[in-house]
Nucleic acid binder design. Sequence first.
DNA 1: CAGGCAACGAGACGGACCGTCTCGTTGCGT
DNA 2: ACGCAACGAGACGGTCCGTCTCGTTGCCTG
Lengths: 206, 206
Amino acid sequence: MAQNQSPAPDTSRRSERSRRAIYDAALALVAEVGYPKTTIEGIASRAGVGKQTIYRWWSSKADVLLEAFLDLSNQAAEAAGQAPYSIPDTGDLAADLKNVLRATVDELRDPAFEAPSRALAAEGVVNEELGRRFVAQLLEPQLQLYVDRLRAAQEAGEVRPDIDPRIALELFVSPLAQRWLQYTGPITHAYTDTLVDYALHGLAPR
Amino acid sequence: MAQNQSPAPDTSRRSERSRRAIYDAALALVAEVGYPKTTIEGIASRAGVGKQTIYRWWSSKADVLLEAFLDLSNQAAEAAGQAPYSIPDTGDLAADLKNVLRATVDELRDPAFEAPSRALAAEGVVNEELGRRFVAQLLEPQLQLYVDRLRAAQEAGEVRPDIDPRIALELFVSPLAQRWLQYTGPITHAYTDTLVDYALHGLAPR
DNA sequence: CAGGCAACGAGACGGACCGTCTCGTTGCGT
DNA sequence: ACGCAACGAGACGGTCCGTCTCGTTGCCTG
């Protein structure tokens, strides 16, 4: 029995030009009018593309935006340096973490990143399938850098050996993430510095 | 100059019956078909109510759901005990925090709470005005309980006096929140226990 | 207790987008 | 050079939006 789900489009004939135009249009519209008011029809017309071209290659507007944002991130990563980036190791864990988190604070304020990443995060909260893809392709690779740096710190004796690095990183990354996502508090360099100090030395008296 | 924004509906003539029916319909639909597929028309027809009655009292479906969920939370809080709830103080901070967080883990799995609170959190990520109301009316009052308990711990010498309790609570609350919101990891009692231990004693060797 | 008036349930209305479906047209692979 | 599938364009029925009328109902005031 022949299935007519979809005639399985031919990737080799795909128009690179249209793909790029769709990415650009999607990112621009989300930044300009917001995610809820961004429509497939709007993306298509702005990209100078037929709606069917979008529906042929993507299943939803969230799907389009996720790919567009991944592409943007990869471009930015290539422009900034080599792909396998890592957190610097000066031998001073606290200082290294504070530096990276300060940079993250600045990045969270960059409008070009803020609109699409908020939109994707919001969609992911309510759409588990997309949320897991967002995490696997974007968030987890970033978190892995902290795992690596924390493991190095364990070998250097700066972190207790029985600590699980994947959980440890959440002590300073998740508070920042929550303040940003949910507007539960201001985001400053002083704040992230404090998080690192609290996490490394604990709340209890020593 | 007479403004015709809206004729300012008369609260005293408002139908309590309709209000309750709308809350129930909104919560039920979000749980049954999900937030994106929940529509104002759907809520109205399920509640046996005219659309205009919804538009007269609320400005958006997110607004309806926030009020409905606040109402549900207040009911649940009254049913469970007196309103000014607080975190128990047995003199063992770690044990008290672990208990509360375990209860929170269980609550996060309750389907009746999960669907609407996810929907509101997602909307809040992308809609700052609603996000701030969500935080102010629902999240922050809960977090304040941790602030109180941590202050008591400071007076008892269980927490260093220079620690800011509002930030300290984020070390164990935010990681749980992020795992739940973004599916960045499994949520278990063992996990939250570990968070409390890490937060209290720090990552660095003592 | 009667009357008036605003909120009510119901649903018609134009408009925006949805996702699907044709059209010719274009441009890549054979 | 040819053929075929992806392309831009847009028509189509459908859903939901937010606004607007209808009578009807039920609560405050006199």
